[in-house]
Amino acid sequence: MTVHVRTTINAEPQEFLCEPGETLLEALRSRLGLTGTKEGCATGDCGACSVLLDGRLVPACLVLAAEVSGREVLTVEGVATGDTLHPVQQKFLEHAALQCGVCTPGFVVAAKALLDHNDDPTEEQVRYWLAGNLCRCTGYDKIVRAVLDAAADMRGVTV
């Protein structure tokens, strides 16, 4: 039985059909062409598929597509405002906080979620908040610095 889903993705109304057992990750990537959300494990252990569901950080691989009916989804494609990057995105570029870049969309969404409710996190808070986002290239150093700097930027402070 195909499910008809009406939802809001990146502030735009979206409608799609999906299988009842299909995940949000599969629907985003295969049905809606939103391939910025990555699959690293499909078991909720890597954070590459991080999205916001009604403002809450979740792994899209462990959400059924059918569940998002009537709710709001934000993916990495919706983080920037037009041509203006979110401070997290800008600081990732400035701090060279990405190497291969495949984990980057998940980090960007997760870091945005952190800064949405805490614009002055400690290094330890950043590290624990992002513990569900695996990065194998950077050793996290430059990622943590980028997030701390983005927070400072959002507070209007220069580090």
Binding site: L34, T35, G36, T37, K38, T75, V76, E77, V79, A80, L85, Q89, F92, L93, L98, G101, V102, T104, P105, V108
Partner: peptide
């Protein structure tokens, strides 16, 4: 970099 922080880069 821009394509990678915005999700546009294709893997």
């Amino acid at each position: 970099g821009l394509d990678k922080v915005t999700g546009r880069a294709n893997y």
